[in-house]
Write a protein that binds this DNA or RNA. Structure first.
Lengths: 350, 350
DNA sequence: CTGAAAGCGCTAACAT
DNA sequence: ATGTTAGCGCTTTCAG
């Protein structure tokens, strides 16, 4: 409307701040103020501007805004290839919190295929890096490469599940798996011999499995029991592994009477199934505790006792921490540790 | 480096295009070209510029770029509150495809709590609207409100799972549930009386359930069998509903000998459990087919026959469609229909 | 093939 | 309280 353009330059946006200014008979600065700092304009002009905005259907150009303010209102979240439910709960929690605080989540998966240049390494937020105000990254195993890369990205960073070493200097959120494991052990030992207790772990390098295994060992050792090598085993987070483990126990004639603490619910389901197939009564002949508190644990019968992890709260806390950091860049690094809680169901009742 | 600034104006970015230009002894225009249209600069200048970029660690400011080019490389995806696995697979597929094509995904959930103004309605991408190049939205039930709102947002839009009415004028991706249901019916009828076949549905307004129920009806009616009212029922997508349904069938003494097609795997698990608890042999006395092909279907015993839905491909296709649309705005609206496929396992073998 | 210059639409001093 | 103005960092004509 009445604006003129250099040759070849056309207006790209339907309605800009200038149009609003014209219509409200004020300067663009006033429009900006009316929208962003309403207390700085007179009630009357404020109203006129808002009306013009409404009538014209004006939407500020976010890029232009961001170019000035250096913030986009978008938070990145980089996750490894997670189990379905864990993934969705985490995102859901993060998204809910972000939305409530006026932010949006940009998701990105962390792949192992880190390219030659660190620039496009495991964390492929690279191209989006300039678009996000901060990043949440989940770490599942010790990996200096990854931690270093994240470090070097130059965005405010919150780590999920990272070790103290890796999260060094950054805010972090994690779950007290040592405590979760302890709860499970205490529960199992209410009615068992230390010698008949087992830990069936996931991947050997996985932080979570490591912590749970460590706590399992510590628990029994602190009670004066020396664990045999066969009492703590690792493989992966699958139902197959649980089944295979149970099968081998059966062949050694050791499954009956065992108390099994599994590193996740899937493994536990595997153990449960093979145990029952072998004619064992659960929990009569075989007691099982899983980990994570997934829906799966409540779908099987008998229902699985499990250590429930507040996954969505993990996402929420990370977002909260990150936003607080954005508002207060000089805060000392903080660390939130969430507590898991043992849910006792039929699979382990003494 | 040598730049001067108006009072109170400081450089906000570590290194800008001007710095690179200075270092490479060219103009900023040339730097821009060297980076975005390498074929337009001489090999020699190109190299000099790239070196300068490298040495200075220059990263173009994405906001400034976007302000000019009007594209951010970010695609929005708005999803309703989905079942964990569905959600994660969809996002994973979308993210993988987006990444491969140089884009990023911004997720946002669709809530029912649509506010007074359409601006912040169910699809809360509002604040991000200006940041995304296009939007993928999943529709699970007829809702003119939502469809209209999406329409009005003025971004390229691809719908997932929408009815033809709702997706009117937009690109869309969906799954041929009618065909999936048909496959299941054909399989069940291989060894059954039409009168002993049942459909146990999810929410009555849910698109997917509606289509599956419709195909179930059509299948039997086209074979001259008139369905009784009790052969098609609706409730929700839970294991409890499956259990309740089976329980009632038992009380009517009708579960033995039944062939049951469930609208999803969870319902099927419910039916399976109650059936087995009642001492029925599956598939001997009771045949069951689920839907979705979730991991859950393979975790139970006997394993569930199920109609597998290519969920990640749903995400991938949507992204592909959207990006093609961005590149070719005038393409006529396109519709991709993916085919589900029946997976026969123990729960239904004749 | 390269440079100068004109903005993209907005915010934030600085004046008034 | 409001307007003027100077950019934010980049892409893209338009002239060489």
């Amino acid at each position: 409307m009445g604006r003129s353009f250099a040759a070849g330059t056309r207006p790209r946006q339907a309605v800009s701040i200038q149009d609003v200014a014209d219509r409200a008979k004020v300067s663009i600065a006033t429009v900006s103020r009316a929208l962003n700092k309403p207390h700085m304009v007179s009630p009357d002009t404020g109203k006129r501007v808002l009306e013009a905005v409404e009538e014209l259907g004006y939407r500020p150009n976010r890029f232009a805004q961001a170019l000035m303010t250096r913030e986009s209102g978008v938070l990145g979240i980089a996750l490894p290839d997670l189990h379905g439910e864990f993934f969705s709960e985490l995102i859901r929690g993060a998204d809910a919190e972000a939305r409530a605080l006026g932010y949006h989540m940009l998701v990105s998966s962390i792949h192992d295929d880190l390219g030659p240049k660190p620039a496009d390494g495991p964390v492929r937020v690279s191209r989006a890096l300039g678009l996000i105000d901060g990043l949440i990254a989940m770490i599942t195993e010790p990996s200096s490469v990854l931690a270093t890369q994240l470090d070097a990205m130059g965005v405010p960073l919150v780590m999920i599940g990272a070790d103290d070493t890796d999260s060094n200097g950054h805010d972090s959120v994690s779950v007290d798996h040592a405590d979760g494991a302890r709860q499970a052990c205490e529960h199992l030992l209410e009615d068992a011999e230390p010698g008949s207790c087992y830990f069936v772990g996931g991947p050997r390098r996985n932080y979570d499995t490591l912590k749970r295994a460590g706590a399992f060992r510590a628990f029994f050792e602190s009670r004066g029991h020396t664990l045999r090598a066969d009492q703590v085993q690792f493989r992966d987070y699958t139902i197959e592994w649980g089944g295979a483990w149970a099968q081998e126990m059966i062949e050694r004639d050791a499954l009956a009477g065992a108390c099994v603490f599994c590193a996740n619910d899937e493994i536990a389901c595997g153990v449960l199934r093979i145990g029952r197939d072998a004619g064992l009564d659960v929990p009569g002949d075989l007691r099982i505790v899983g980990y994570d508190g997934t829906r799966l644990s409540q779908l099987v019968r008998p229902r699985l006792s499990t250590v429930a992890v507040p996954v969505d709260e993990l996402g929420r806390s990370a977002v909260r921490l990150l936003i607080e950091r954005l508002n207060e860049p000089d805060l000392p690094p903080r660390k939130i540790v969430l507590s898991p809680s043992l849910l006792v169901h039929e699979s382990s009742s003494p």
